[in-house]
Design a protein around this nucleic acid. Structure first.
Length: 599
RNA sequence: GCCUCGGUAGCUCAGUUGGAUAGAGCAACUGCCUUCUAAGCAGUAGGUCAUGGGUUCGAAUCCCGUCCGGGGUACCA
């Protein structure tokens, strides 16, 4: 199989247009699509654009071209004209050779990076260290990790990175609350996961703070004044000042509480199956950002106002004025991102930078791109903000302070329980040790959660209903995992019988429409991965795998494999099954989802 | 106000650079396990693709207007 059949047909059509109608057209302009399932044929050529050359009816033109192709292209076994569409039947021999090629390639569909491959850095996760991860972070983490896998599969060099927002007023709030009401509690002394413990103090802070504000307002202060003067917030600000002044005691507490949080995050990251090649900390980058801005000021890229604040004038780029340093000289969000960019640029030879950050930051990244470009970062202009929509709950938005967040750890644990219950009811894992069974429950639970989130177009907001959203039937992760497990089971039984899947280029083999359709879907995998990488969309992979598995299940239902008396057909079906399982495993791997041998 | 993203079945979502009769799953109803795992398969029902125009052989898809919703909008991150 030297060339894809679509390409051969495109070129032949172009030639046919020339031979029949004396008109030159580029082969790439020929539209080929998969034929509708309810019509005969495999591939469809859209003939409408050729009518102005042929000066004939759509039907007549289609017949001309169909006859030409059938004559000239070996793989075209027949053609049908329906409503002006030219539908081509491709010989089963061609499809079998496609299957054989897919079967023999160890990593079918994947490209591996070479020294010349571009290096893509993906920033994702980027948590604050004052509270545990929640559902919104889960979407971020899953998208970021999956995107990394997809780009790797597409032959890019990928560096996954995390910028931890470890400094600022938020962590100082938790620190203050711990000092005041913590009674020396630690994760060890309480048995509470570190990120949750620190998060609890953040909530406690907010409770006291709001109490103080309402008391001050009762004494006649305005809301704004009360919010500024509340003792708690003043104390937190004082801690931030001490931290910036490198007060040893404050730094010590800050460092200790952050360590608790990191230990907690590590557990959650491990459960989610995500990881990073390089972690940056904002406490290391914010001063670098300030230096960069000062340099830009000296070079006249930025300007300073009378109150000493530093600004960028972006009106020439269609944007507004943007503050980069406050009048007191402290840095803002943008300043830190510039500093982080600087460090990354020093550390890696970045060709493309991708930021996985929610869509509420669209404007921020538009500005960042322009600023980095002005500061001379080569990849600044072409940076990609992988902007994803929010996860909404049935009762509205998640708000940490109002306790309406869905905690990541709780969610995962709850789903593992559902997986256990379902599995036990179905009696699927009888004979597994408790350890093996638990591993499988986790695989299923995470598969359900990840697939649910990743199958949705990233840029859209999505709704998550904790009670109803996670299903194990239909268009779900477990459905796909189940199909995989079933194939593995068949292959195990085949191995017990001493059968190894093998395929020869047996052109004479008679295969069913369903089998042929399945191979057609298999043949689409490499192009689908390319599309997903191009579009930065794990959802494209998710929907492809679902479609593949759905077709396999139909095949599985209608055909027997091991009981098939004709050995050549039996072997063919084993190869077909193994190839599907391989693609399912690869495809799910691109989503960061594992597949179980049994379930 | 301005910028930006969305609106597809009761619900959650697909729908490739414009192509044929707009597809899945869930929920509802109905069949199929003495035969490779029924977390499956098959079927019934469910649609003014928000809305009005335009472009053309052809529009859920492209353009313009309107309505509804999310997000952003210069010293929060």
């Amino acid at each position: 199989m030297d060339m894809l059949i679509e390409q051969i047909i495109k070129e032949k059509i172009a030639k046919a247009i020339f031979d029949l109608y004396s008109q030159e057209i580029p082969a790439e302009s020929v539209q080929i699509q998969n034929t509708r399932k309810d019509v005969d044929g495999d591939l469809t050529v859209v003939v409408f654009p050729f009518l102005r050359f042929s000066k004939k009816s759509p039907e007549q033109t289609a017949h001309d071209l169909g006859a030409y192709l059938k004559e000239q292209v070996e793989e075209v076994s027949d053609y049908f004209v329906v409503k002006g569409f030219l539908n081509l039947a491709i010989s089963s021999g061609y499809w079998i050779s496609v299957l054989a090629a897919a079967f023999e390639q160890e990593s079918y569909g994947l490209e591996s990076a070479t020294d010349e491959s571009p290096l893509v850095m993906i920033e994702y996760s980027s948590p604050n260290t004052n509270k545990p991860l929640h559902l919104g972070h889960i979407r971020n983490n899953l998208l970021g990790f999956s995107l990394g896998e997809i780009l790797k599969g597409n032959g890019k060099k990928v560096v996954k990175t995390n910028i931890v927002n470890d400094r600022g007023i938020h962590i100082c709030k938790s620190m203050y609350a711990w000092q005041q009401w913590g009674e020396g509690k630690t994760p060890e002394s309480t048995g509470i996961k570190g990120d949750h413990l620190v998060g609890d103090f953040y909530v406690l802070f907010d409770k006291h703070y709001r109490q103080e504000v309402s008391e001050l307002m009762a004494k006649g202060l305005s809301k704004d004044d009360a919010e500024q003067q509340a003792p708690s917030i003043q104390a937190a600000r004082e801690l931030l000042r001490k931290w910036e002044a490198k007060d040893p005691e404050t730094i010590q507490l800050w460092s200790e509480m952050n360590q608790w949080v990191y230990a907690g995050f590590d557990v959650t990251y491990k459960e989610l199956g995500v990881d990073f090649d390089k972690i940056y900390y904002e406490s290391d980058t914010y001063l670098v950002g300030r230096d960069e801005v000062m340099k830009g000021l000296e070079q006249g890229i930025f300007y300073q106002k009378e109150d000493n604040s530093v600004w960028a004038d972006l009106t020439a780029d269609g944007l507004d004025q943007k503050i980069l340093l406050r009048s007191d000289g402290t840095s803002v969000y943008m300043t830190q991102d510039i500093g982080t960019a600087k460090l990354r640029f020093n550390d890696y030879k970045i060709d493309k930078m991708v930021y996985v950050v929610g869509n509420e930051q669209n404007y921020h990244f538009q500005v960042l791109s322009v600023l980095l470009d002005k500061l001379g970062f080569e990849w600044g202009k072409g940076l990609h903000h992988f902007s994803y929509g929010m996860v909404e709950l049935p009762h509205g938005k998640m708000k940490s302070r109002e306790g309406t967040v869905v905690d990541a750890d709780d969610l995962i644990a709850g789903m593992v329980e559902v997986a256990r219950k379902t599995s036990e009811e179905l009696g699927k894992l009888d004979g597994y040790s408790e350890e093996e069974a638990l591993e499988t429950y986790k695989t299923i639970a995470l598969g359900a959660l990840k697939y649910f989130i990743l199958k949705v177009d990233p840029k859209k907001n999505m709704l998550f209903n904790p009670e109803e959203s996670i299903d194990f039937n239909g268009n779900t992760g477990p459905f796909i995992q189940y199909t995989y497990a079933r194939i593995r089971s068949v292959l195990r039984k085949a191995a017990e019988k001493g059968l190894t899947p093998k395929i020869s280029a047996n052109i004479g083999l008679k295969i069913s429409d369903k089998e042929q359709e399945l191979i057609k879907t298999i043949s689409l995998f490499p192009a689908t991965l390319g599309e997903a990488a191009e579009a930065y969309s794990p959802a494209i992979i998710a929907n492809y795998v679902y479609n593949l598995v759905k077709e396999y299940n139909q095949f599985y239902h209608d055909h027997s494999i091991l009981a098939e008396p004709d050995e050549a057909i039996r072997d063919f079906r084993l190869v077909l099954s193994e190839t599907v399982s391989k693609i399912v495993k690869t495809g799910m791997g691109l989503l960061g989802i594992n597949v179980p041998e049994r379930m």
